[in-house]
Design a protein around this nucleic acid. Structure first.
Length: 701
DNA sequence: TGCGAGGTAAACAGAT
DNA sequence: CATCTGTTTACCTCGC
């Protein structure tokens, strides 16, 4: 819930517009059929959706027929695709059914594009013909005026959508991590399970596009598209967005022109912006996959114009980015649906009526009533530290009323967001921060960019920081840097939270100060930490008492139990061997279907309930799904003594080994959670003006 | 109601 | 002397 809420709030606007646009498209089609639908006619939603599906099926059929007529066409069945001649199917599928496109297909599309432009054109024409035929058969009257009106409306909304999408991209909200070695996709970019691209795959796509893949591009559709002149080079030959819905190519062309105008306008706006550019930060070009160093803004502009001009490669990169965004949007819609269902189940007010798209709202109507952020998505990364309009921290937190309370309100004083912390489990992966939050894991980027207080205790964060370091030890200043680097929230009020950090370091025995050559460093006494944690758990009678009934998110799923789960994997994190950032989004798939978390007696099924068995997948996991799955996987790794399966070795830095003090509870610690590795060196963070200086470079080492 | 956990503020001392 | 680091105490809210 937590995660869903945050994700929703981040991209709500985009999704809403997209959804509206899609709906409008459907209605447009329907309107041409029965001539009765209108933009505000919600009663036609079902039928139009069905019609859309029908049209997609028909278009798919047409594409298959066309391809089957071609010699060497490899379309026999979806299973018949092999890697030698894979593209015919992917292209057709990609155009007609975006949600079933597989990563391989996408890659093939981008890399090879076996279909010639003529074939594509023929395919489109045939698709259009089939659609028209279908319409003629079923349609008795055509309300021409309505059609025109709806087309206009559609264009408007398409325009808005594109604008917003571009904004989001440019603001880095949906930024694609560069292909830096060891860098993996962000949790927030985990892609949907329904055949979407995994972050790693998208990463590969970027590499392909930015690297050798560009040549393949030039040899295929894009170049041809340029020659056609329609929309210029920025118009991809296969506009996944446009064609995905099986809509008329004519309409798509129009949209492409609209987008082109949009891009131009945006570009000019940025150029007038005077030294700031969403693609430029900290002397580095933030164009996906670039990261070229630019001394100043002028040089950046030069670089941008030279290296990222309106050419085939840039177009392809832009297209991939669009794919990323679209996948995220699809995922967001699904997560939103799930959230709605969950909230409905819990008798909570739905955050938003699904049928009423709204601009980005970081504040859930369920719990938040103040500090309403006026920031739209584009503002989000730019104003994480804006004190006047802080993003209400708990807005993205779990929809548990007692937990939420506007922890970011400065006047709260000692008011706690007590258990919020326990819903989460920060993990680390040697170098790159890895957060596995059952509820908010995908929002790592969110916390990184938004002025939202992380729902973790200082102790947890400090431990995370230390475990995140290469040698499991940090100086105080490095801990500070980690805080500021990882959470936008800690880029202000430094005196307050730094004092709290010091206070916690001194207060908790689990933090051990070690005199080093360079000075004092802080380490984590893992046993002490676990001891403290287990005391928390065992000290809560309700934990055991409520175990049988903890089947949901209700009170039975109490804080103690959640704390046990939340911190389950913490000990593991320091093991660099477990951290393979390259497999982000895929790890944690092992043994996830085991189901019975016997090692954690009474583990909250409610927390795991979001994973219907049929929906579990290894690649790519959905945002929330992965968290749930990973939690399952963690539990599966437990034996009955609460010890984890092989893979965890105690941190060698541990100053003392406490053999005693075995956790009495069904200890769940030392269980590997799935490791969603995130790129942790986003330049956006460093843009914060009050960001603590220094130490940023040391992270890059 | 009491207790413990956690957050915040502050005082203080030693080191740099 | 200022700042940083580290310790300690006090007070607050919250959940149990």
């Amino acid at each position: 819930m937590m995660q869903e809420s945050a994700t929703e709030t981040i991209s709500n606007s985009s999704m809403s517009q997209n959804g509206l646009s899609t709906l409008c498209s459907s209605q447009l089609e329907a309107g041409s059929r029965d001539g009765r639908s209108s933009a505000g006619d919600t009663s036609s939603e079902v039928s139009t959706v069905e019609l859309l599906h029908l049209q997609q099926q028909q278009a798919l059929q047409a594409a298959r027929q066309l391809l089957l007529q071609q010699p060497g066409s490899g379309l026999k069945s979806p299973k018949s695709q092999d890697k030698q001649r894979p593209l015919q199917v992917p292209v057709s599928v990609a155009m007609m059914s975006p949600q079933v496109i597989t990563p391989q297909q996408m890659q093939q599309i981008l890399q090879q594009q076996v279909l010639s432009p003529q074939q594509l054109q023929a395919l489109l024409q045939q698709q259009q013909a089939v659609m028209l035929q279908q319409q003629q058969q079923q349609q008795q009257q055509l309300a021409a005026q309505q059609l025109v009106f709806q087309q206009q409306l559609l264009q408007m909304q398409q325009l808005q959508q594109q604008q917003h999408l571009l904004n989001m991209q440019r603001q880095g909200l949906l930024s694609m991590p560069g292909p830096a070695p060891g860098q993996a996709a962000l949790p927030g970019q985990t892609l949907p399970p329904q055949g979407g691209l995994s972050p790693a795959e998208l990463q590969q796509l970027w590499k392909d596009v930015t690297g050798g893949g560009g040549h393949a591009m030039e040899d295929n559709g894009i170049k041809h598209n340029n020659s056609t002149g329609a929309g210029g080079a920025a118009s991809p030959p296969i506009t996944h967005h446009a064609l995905a819905n099986g809509q008329s190519p004519v309409l798509n062309h129009r949209r492409e022109r609209e987008r082109e105008r949009d891009r131009e306008r945006e570009s000019s706006l940025h150029e007038e912006n005077g030294g700031t550019h969403p693609l430029y930060g900290h002397g580095v070009c933030k164009w996906p996959g670039c990261e070229s160093i630019c001394e100043d803004f002028g040089q950046f502009l030069k670089h941008l114009n030279n290296e990222h001009a309106l050419d085939d490669r840039s177009t392809a990169q832009c297209r991939v980015q669009m794919q990323v965004v679209q996948q995220l949007e699809i995922q967001l819609s699904k997560e939103r649906e799930r959230l709605q269902a969950m909230m409905a189940h819990l008798h909570m007010r739905p955050s938003e009526p699904k049928s009423s798209p709204k601009p980005l709202n970081l504040v859930s109507s369920v719990t938040m009533s103040k500090n309403l952020p006026s920031a739209s998505p584009p503002n989000l990364p730019q104003t994480p530290t804006t004190p006047t309009a802080p993003i209400t921290p708990m807005a993205a937190m779990p929809q548990v009323p007692s937990v939420l309370g506007g922890a970011n309100v400065p006047s709260m004083g000692a008011m706690r967001r007590r258990h919020v912390d326990k819903y989460s489990m920060p993990l680390s992966s040697g170098g790159d921060t890895v957060f596995i939050f059952p509820e908010i894991a995908p929002n790592y980027e969110f916390y990184k960019n938004a002025d939202v207080r992380p729902p973790f205790t200082y102790a947890t964060l400090i431990r995370q920081a230390i475990m995140d370091s290469a040698d499991m030890q940090l100086t105080l200043n490095e801990i500070y840097s980690w805080f500021t680097r990882t959470f936008a929230y800690f880029r202000r009020n430094a005196a307050t939270w730094k004092n709290a950090v010091r206070h916690n370091l001194s207060l908790h025995k689990c933090f051990v100060r070690v005199e080093n050559v360079k000075g004092a460093v802080w380490t984590v006494d893992e046993m002490e930490y676990q001891k403290r944690r287990s005391q928390k758990i065992t000290g809560s009678p309700s934990l055991v008492k409520n175990l049988p009934s903890s089947l949901g998110y209700g009170t039975a799923l109490n804080a103690s139990l959640q704390a046990a789960l939340a911190e389950t994997s913490l000990p593991l994190l320091g093991n660099p061997g477990l951290m393979n950032s390259g497999s982000a989004g895929h790890m944690g798939c092992h043994g996830l279907l085991g189901g019975d978390p016997s090692g954690l007696a009474g583990s909250p099924p409610g927390l795991l309930a979001g994973s219907p068995p049929g929906t579990l997948r290894c690649s790519p996991p959905s945002l929330l799904q992965s968290a749930h799955d990973e939690l399952n996987g963690t539990l599966d790794h437990l034996d009955t003594n609460g010890h984890s399966s092989p893979g965890y070795s105690p941190p060698v830095h541990m100053p003392q080994i406490h053999v005693k003090e075995e956790p009495q509870n069904m200890d769940d610690e030392d269980c590997p959670m799935s490791l969603v590795t995130t790129a942790n060196h986003s330049p956006e963070l460093e843009e914060e003006r009050d960001l603590e200086e220094g130490n940023l470079s040391e992270d890059l080492e």
